[in-house]
Amino acid sequence: MNFLYFDPGLGAMIVQAVVAGAAGVLLFSKGVMYKVKSFFGLTKEKEDTYDSIDIEEQDTDDKKN
């Protein structure tokens, strides 16, 4: 990479493997819990402008045309 202009922290680079593992387990179990809850109708929708990490895509495709 060309832009190593600040020290990312070696420990921080190594630890990400563990963090990702823990996150994977957590997200998976959350997903299971959500399915169980929604089966019993226990989920509720919250209103927040930041409710999802994903952003809308439609504009990118339009531009290519």
Binding site: Q16, A23, L27
Partner: peptide
């Protein structure tokens, strides 16, 4: 794996 980190944070 990186996406999982981002998603869980």
């Amino acid at each position: 794996a990186q996406e999982n980190i981002l998603q869980s944070l």
